[in-house]
Design a protein around this nucleic acid. Structure first.
Lengths: 342, 342
DNA sequence: TTTTTTTACGCAATCGTTCCCGGTAACCTT
DNA sequence: AAGGTTACCGGGAACGATTGCGTAAAAAAA
């Protein structure tokens, strides 16, 4: 069974007018007499006429839809971002098509191709943690597709970028640990390819340096899939606990890294904060309910989604090619709670 | 700047053929000679030709996209469902357009209109907790739009429906509490309008009855927005704790109800499970990390999304009108943990 | 050789909408 | 009264792709 919609042609036939006239009447053109307009408008209202967006897209060469690529929507940080994206997109009459990479480079490429073939007007991207090569995005970008990167950005492409101040987030968290008296602060980091990983690592190192602490690479462990696979986290933590001076505090540089860290502690019966302190980047709204409640760096995800979308739509609707691109940096916020209190 | 794509016309011009020939060559028609086919195919490959899905949609009168309406995507249960939906949809060449009601009837209606105007081929719906009137959906359904309800279904419409066995979920949870020795088991329920609320309430009552417990309506508190607003939960719990016999166990009938319940306990310094036991419907994958770890009824969200999508696409692609609709019931699973252990 | 069949391709309509280009009145200006 | 404006509306092309139908040339059959 098909879902037959009313067209402009139906109205034209019913009213004995041409499609041109009906179209113009509906768009309130000055070339149409008030009576005809009224007639058309009322009839259209009556039979609940809705313009066919597909026909419009074909004519206007724009689909009024934007693509989103994230690693996972079942992740508070990203679902909050998507919330922000939607709030702006729907306001401006765009709809969003979401694709997930699940932290796989291969799936990211496939999804990009898919979205491109669905003729989207623009793309919002946060790359997967496996992504090194950017040809799949560069290609589209060179052909004129507006792209905005958020959170996990890349240097090689000049477009709008929206990030949080990861350096500051990590710096503040590390400083908080130092000031709380912790000596051996380990960094449970994400994929080495990601911009956020590097930035957070820098913040961590700088905080150590600024407080006269030695930087020891042994206290840094990378997890390629950002905590998505528990075994990676387990391995990383096992290695950390084999060090001569076991860490007495851990900075978890991603949501899943932090929660899987907790899972590890629970399994090994390691007590927080008595045996070890933990602070993590997390946007879960449950971290205050854990016991001990978790000290976290929280990122303004919703705002990030909004801002990215505004920049993207602005670029899409710009008459002339956008040349100067912005790099917007949002402030993270540290919530100190029980997991870092000695 | 526009993103100019290659069209069939470009190929035709470059190769000195007609668009019909090119189209047929690309679709491997028997009417085209092998040499011409090879020529066209190779050229198309070279310039990276992709058929314009919008033009196809216009001609075929189908958009190969399906709409989803949920209350909130930043909710594990629903984001897991969406994961399941996507996994099937992308496999079958559909893309999904997600809209959130935020538990508001008004926004649900607006979103339904919006999705309908975007000419979707089908709709997956889980109604908002405010929704009583269904005209906005009935209307579309009568005009032939395939609709599948999941989780929060409605009786008044005959379509495919996919739910979990809420009765069993609540029954098992309640029985577990009874067998654990709790006497005054309160039910923190969601909106009275929702199917899931009624089903869970029935499971709860039946379990009480089967174990010779009296059913006391004072132990049931509804929260219209399913825990989305903390104040509603606070009010409900305040009322429960004013009862002569204070509840010694609570059944939280939704994710947010349960977590906000914990938030209330924390605020009031009520200890779980010493002062009160808690079991909740929840799909968070963090509930095992809470301390005490939370006893939960977990629902097969991913599978629910998959199944719903399969049924929807099946109906969309069916040649003749689908007459017999299915009602699929998936099993929930009870995970007993510390929060219900005396 | 003539007729028939097959092969291989082009023409044009179609989907729903917009918009450029005309056209025809009625009205206004000298 | 003749020409110029203005108001109002219709025809038809275009967007990109598919497809029924028509047809020329080549191949097969007579």
């Amino acid at each position: 069974m098909k879902f037959e919609a009313v067209t402009i042609k139906d109205i034209a036939k019913a009213l004995g007018l041409s499609t041109s006239t009906v179209s113009r009447a509906l768009r309130d053109s000055y070339e149409i007499s008030p009576e005809t307009k009224k007639l058309v408008l009322e009839y259209a209202q009556n039979i609940n006429y809705r313009p066919n967006p597909i026909a419009l897209s074909l004519k206007e060469k724009r689909s009024r839809s934007i693509g989103i690529i994230v690693c996972e929507i079942a992740n508070s940080f990203f679902s909050q971002i998507i919330n922000g994206i939607e709030s702006i997109a729907y306001d401006k009459g765009y709809n969003v098509i979401i694709a997930q990479s699940h932290e796989s480079y291969e799936r990211e490429v496939i999804n990009v191709q898919y979205l491109a073939s669905r003729s989207i007007d623009g793309l919002l991207v946060s790359v997967s943690s496996e992504t090194k090569d950017l040809e799949h995005l560069k290609n589209l970008h060179e052909r004129g597709l507006p792209i905005v990167f958020f959170d996990r950005i890349v240097d090689e492409m000049t477009t709008h970028k929206v990030i949080v101040d990861n350096f500051k987030g990590a710096y503040d968290a590390t400083e908080h640990l130092i000031k709380s008296g912790y000596k051996y602060i380990a960094n449970l980091a994400g994929s080495e390819y990601l911009s956020i990983t590097k930035e957070r690592l820098n913040g961590y190192s700088q905080a150590l340096a600024d407080h006269g602490r030695a930087f020891d690479p042994h206290y840094i462990q990378h997890c390629l899939h950002g905590g998505m696979v528990y075994e990676e986290v387990e391995k990383a933590l096992d290695d950390l606990f084999k060090l001569e001076h076991k860490p007495d505090a851990i900075l978890g540089c991603a949501d899943k890294l932090t929660t899987n860290c907790l899972r590890y502690f629970k399994k090994k019966n390691i007590k927080v904060p008595d045996d070890i302190a933990l602070v993590g980047f997390s946007n879960l709204d449950l971290t205050d309910l854990l016991s001990p409640s978790l000290t976290v760096v929280r990122q303004p995800a919703f705002e990030m989604g909004q801002l990215s979308t505004e920049l993207l739509i602005q670029q899409i609707e710009s008459k002339r090619p956008v040349k100067d691109f912005e790099r917007r940096i949002l402030p993270p916020q540290l919530f100190t709670r029980e997991s870092t209190g000695l």
